[in-house]
Simulated assay, not measured.
Amino acid sequence: MFVFRILFFVVFTLPVLAQDLPRFESEIRAFEAADKTTRPPRRPILFTGSSSIRLWDNLASYFPGKKLLNRGFGGSELSDVIRYADRIIIPYKPKQIVLYAGENDIATGKVSGQQTYERFVTLFRYVRKRLPGVPFVFISIKPSPSRRQYRAQVDEANRLIKQFLAGQSKTNFVDIGPVMRQPNGQTIGALFKSDSLHMNEKGYVLWARELRPVLR
């Protein structure tokens, strides 16, 4: 009977517990486990945010001579980065923070450009309070072809975030929109994978070129 109870717990209870984990919790735990195996660099330039950061393969090769740490996760929204800031940003005491997030917030169809901006401000102020003076870089929300219906909201969020950061110390707003669009305003499709959402190497080459001048 005792053995049966143990088997019942393993078979039925553990899957339920796994399903009850907060969104992206398993990825965050994987980062924490990796840190115990391999010590992260001291005072890195920390990249975080959504899948556009997570999928940036060989990130360090784009920025020779820089100590980098990639903590992009899932298809995260700004609200997710806020939730996990104490675990994926603050503990590393980064030399500089580079963030790409906000696109997935808007793509839910339930979050406006204004609300996306407000989420960003919440995150920025939270991090600034705990890491005073750490330089902060925001990569503008990109013009993904598959999400062209949200362009007005994306433009609003970018405009408001850029305006906000202009009034803050040690910040940069890296506007990658112009280099990702043709002269007629249409997004350059060749920068994206077949899903017209995630970038290929050509897209990341452009991002790196725009980021290099602001990395410390």
Rank of each mutant, 00 (worst) to 15 (best):
V205C: 03
E201C: 03
Q96T: 03
P41W: 05
V134S: 08
I28N: 06
L131T: 14
S146P: 07
R128H: 14
S50M: 01
P40S: 12
P143C: 11
E25H: 09
D20A: 15
P213T: 02
M199K: 05
T122W: 05
H198L: 07
R42M: 08
R119L: 12
G189N: 09
L7G: 10
V81K: 06
N158G: 14
I141N: 02
T13W: 12
G189L: 14
R125M: 13
T108W: 00
L14G: 01
L211D: 11
P44T: 09
I106D: 01
Q163W: 08
K129D: 14
K129G: 14
A208E: 05
R29N: 13
D195W: 06
I141T: 06
R181L: 15
R151M: 13
Q168G: 09
V174N: 13
R119C: 02
K202Y: 10
I89E: 06
A152L: 11
I82K: 02
I45K: 03
K67N: 14
R125E: 15
P15Q: 10
A33E: 14
P145V: 01
V111H: 01
S194H: 11
L78A: 12
K142T: 00
P44Y: 10
L21C: 09
L14Q: 07
G75I: 03
I45D: 02
